[in-house]
Structures are given as structure tokens and as C-alpha cells.
Amino acid sequence: MIMTNRLFYVIAMAAWMFFGYSFEAKAQCGDELTDVCHAKLGDSRFIRSFPVQHTERRGASPRVYKFEVILNRGTTYRIFSCNDKTKPGEVIVSLYQGDQLIATTYDVETERFFPYIEYPVGMSGRYELHFMFKDNMEGCAVGMLSIVN
């Protein structure tokens, strides 16, 4: 009995890890979401998390949540995010320097989401992470910044 329980548990854990965010279903906004997202780090080293919460605003253009970061030359950063599945909104993460868009996790044309941005930095300096929710839907998400070894 115990053995089968264990086995089941191991399979479930493995499945959870492999299929990552599809098991985010029950995660609540906030700490728990961050923990769940933590699983997506893989072999990168965690630097910072960016929780964002968005409620619908009628009319006006969708709000963008910005965070400034300093990225250093010689380091490769990985940027990704996780959504709170209990809400409809899906977050789009974009990396900017000043006005220039460097990379984004959502391709408008193909309507495809990319889980990660990887950025081996050449120029140290100020950058910005922009978070926006697709279709201005209400949502809760967390952005993660990590270093790749």
C-alpha cells in the first residue's frame, strides 16, 4: 500500500514538474503563485520576482506595469512569468531599454506565447520590464528574473 502511494506521489511530482504551468490551476495570486513559478526556474538562479495584479478598466488603454532593473554585462538573464489560472488574464512580458523594445514573450502575429526570454547582456545599464495583460483581461501574474549559469 505504502509503496503504491509513494509511486503515485513521485509520478505526480514528476508530471507537475514537466508540465509546469498547466498545473498552476489552483494557485492563488501572490506568494503561492511565486512559489509555483519557482518551479520554472530550471537551472537558473533566482534574482527577483515581480508580482502584478490587474483589474479591468473600461475604456482606457490597458495599463502597463513597469519595473526598472539593472542588468550587467557578461551575465545571461532569463525572464519568464506565470499566470493565476483562476483569472482570465494572461500576462505579456516585454524587455525595454528606454524606448527600445528588446524582446517580448508574446508574438502578436502568430498569437503565440513564449515562456522565456533569455538575454546575454552586452551593455550594462538600466532596463525596464513591462507587464501587460492580453486583451486587458483581469488577471494576476508574477514575473521572474533569474541568471543563467
Binding site: A103, T105, F114, Y116, I117, E118, Y119, P120, M123
Partner: peptide, 9 residues
């Protein structure tokens, strides 16, 4: 699945 940036700056 990754968007990799090639940075020449």
C-alpha cells in the same frame, strides 16, 4: 521555447 536576444551592444 525561448526568445533569445542577440546583443551586439
Amino acid at each position: 521555447d525561448k526568445v533569445v536576444v542577440v546583443d551586439n551592444s
